[in-house]
Simulated scan of single mutants.
Amino acid sequence: MPSSVIHNYVYFPETEILRIIYQSGSVYDYLEVPADIFERFRSVQSKGRFLNYVINPKFSFKKIK
């Protein structure tokens, strides 16, 4: 999963939280992300582009770190 923006990610299906760990070290939780959106995110080649065009505009988020 090489990405110039995203270092890693974790999905918590019980709470529908997608946690993104950025290359910068910042950590954000994206809230109420359905499993089907996560599966699409997981399967795309450009995770940064998907995050910017699909997840960021539709889902609330909070900075964790």
Rank of each mutant, 00 (worst) to 15 (best):
I20Q: 08
G48I: 03
E16D: 11
I37H: 07
N8Q: 12
I37K: 10
I21G: 02
F38C: 08
F50S: 06
F12D: 12
R40K: 12
D36W: 02
Q45C: 07
R42S: 14
K65N: 07
I21W: 07
G48P: 01
K62R: 11
G25D: 03
Q45H: 12
V44Y: 03
S24K: 08
L31H: 11
F12H: 13
N8A: 14
F59Y: 15
R40N: 06
L31E: 04
P57I: 02
S60T: 12
E14N: 10
D29F: 01
N8M: 05
S3T: 04
F12S: 09
A35R: 12
E32I: 09
G48N: 07
R42T: 00
F38V: 09
V54G: 03
S46F: 04
S24T: 15
P13A: 15
V10Y: 11
E39K: 13
F59S: 10
S43G: 12
S3E: 04
P34Y: 06
I55Y: 06
Q23A: 05
R42C: 15
F59M: 10
P13E: 14
P57T: 05
F59P: 02
L18N: 05
S26I: 05
I64C: 10
V10R: 13
S4D: 06
V54P: 02
E32K: 13
Q23S: 00
L51W: 13
D29R: 09
I64K: 14
R19L: 06
F12T: 12
I37S: 03
S4H: 04
R40C: 01
S43A: 14
S3W: 02
Y22R: 11
K63A: 10
Y30L: 08
K62I: 03
I37W: 00
N56G: 01
L51K: 08
I17K: 13
S26K: 15
E32G: 00
D36K: 09
S26M: 08
S46Y: 13
D29E: 03
V5G: 00
I6R: 03
H7V: 00
Y9W: 14
Y22W: 12
E32Y: 03
D29A: 14
F61I: 01
E32M: 05
Y53M: 13
M1F: 04
S60F: 03
R40T: 06
F41K: 04
Y28Q: 04
E14P: 00
F50W: 09
